[in-house]
């Protein structure tokens, strides 16, 4: 539907911004994994976009394709077994999937960076944290050891690690989980990326630390006006930070909404189920709602709407026709044939 991008020669300059293009746009992305058991369709036509200074939360359970989409954006999928049969990932209007490996590596880490879930395993255990942060400056900016070290201390201060100067020569295992995640974040923002993807950045952390890390990410985004993609399965974590939410299920986006609208009035049965399965103090003593059934097997996707076997709103049509993303309003859409019912139905 869109013109395939013609600017594949060379990289877009930093800051040079095509007026009509979002900072990052994923368009009809498909990713499949070729395994011995067959082809797993992990991502089936995902589209979302992100502007500078904006926070997009991508919500979904394990296997929904949210992390695979992020890995495709980063270009860190192992291919094979992964394959991208269709789709575009446009960064400043340039399709990243059409770039050479060399051009791609110029973007990875420098313009689009990523924070991983478990910072302990994502940091190299044999080098000090200072060495690892400084490495970013030495390798990509050609700084001297001394200068890079100074920058590393600055960055550790910026992500608010107490006593950065004393702790720069410590190893990752000597830090607490929250501090390790701060170090991971420091490394990812070292080169001033325009897009930061955080893949479940707080899942491995205590609830109190989760909030601090979220705050930190939100602040860093504001300071440097970068686009932030928060990948999570936890609705509670993103509520205060995100601008808009894309809910994924079975490799598709099932609902797009500004964050507060989604909480107030979900437009897809899956989102609604998720919201109702959050424990609430005012419902204490009642049985907690749970979405029935199991997440779909990627090797044998249900026909029609992938959610139909678990859906309380299902009709015959759902098993045969894949629902398109119906537009609810300018900013909202839902991939449910009966979104009106879900939308108007209030709570069950």
């Amino acid at each position: 539907m869109r013109n395939p991008s013609v600017e594949t020669q060379g990289l877009p300059a930093r800051g040079a911004h095509a007026a009509d293009e979002p900072l990052l746009a994923v368009d009809n992305l498909h990713v499949e994994f070729h395994t011995r058991q067959g082809v797993a369709h992990a991502v089936n036509g995902v589209s979302y976009s992100l502007n500078a200074g904006e926070t997009l939360a991508v919500l979904g359970e394990s296997g929904s394709g949210k992390s695979v989409t992020a890995q495709a954006i980063m270009g860190i999928l192992d291919m094979p077994p992964a394959r991208i049969p269709a789709g575009e990932i446009r960064f400043h209007g340039t399709d990243l999937l059409k770039l050479s490996d060399k051009d791609r590596s110029q973007i990875r880490g420098q313009r689009i960076a990523m924070v991983f879930q478990d910072a302990l395993s994502a940091l190299n255990p044999v080098f000090t944290v200072g060495w690892q942060i400084a490495e970013m400056f030495r390798v990509h900016r050609g700084m001297s050891r001394g200068d890079a070290r100074k920058k590393a201390v600055e960055l550790m201060d910026r992500v608010r690690i107490p006593g950065a100067k004393q702790r720069i020569d410590d190893y990752p295992h000597q830090f607490s989980g929250g501090m390790r995640q701060r170090i991971m974040i420091a490394m990812s923002i070292a080169l001033d990326p325009e897009v930061l993807i955080a893949d479940e950045p707080t899942t491995a952390l205590d609830v109190t630390v989760q909030a601090q890390i979220m705050e930190l990410l939100a602040e860093l985004r504001q300071e440097s006006n970068m686009g932030l993609i928060l990948i999570t399965h936890d609705l509670g974590v993103v509520a205060d930070v995100a601008d808009k939410i894309a809910v994924m299920y079975g490799g598709r986006i099932v609902e797009n909404a500004p964050v507060h609208d989604l909480y107030r009035n979900p437009g897809h049965p899956y989102t609604k189920g998720l919201l109702e399965s959050i424990p609430r103090v005012d419902l204490k003593g009642q049985e907690l709602y749970a979405i029935k059934g199991m997440p779909p097997n990627l090797l044998e996707m249900p026909s029609g709407c992938a959610f139909h076997p678990r859906c309380p709103y299902r009709r015959d049509e759902c098993a045969t026709a894949v629902p398109p993303l119906y537009s609810i309003s300018g900013t909202r859409s839902s991939a449910c044939h009966y979104w009106r019912e879900v939308f108007d139905g209030g709570s069950r």
Partner: peptide, 26 residues
């Protein structure tokens, strides 16, 4: 297959650097 190798790649490290700095010492 350790996360830190994937993470190093996502933060822009090249093959040679990943092999010598992240895999070899570990």
């Amino acid at each position: 297959n350790q996360d830190y190798v994937v993470a190093a790649r996502a933060l822009g490290a090249g093959s040679g650097r990943i092999m010598m700095r992240h895999i070899l010492p570990n």
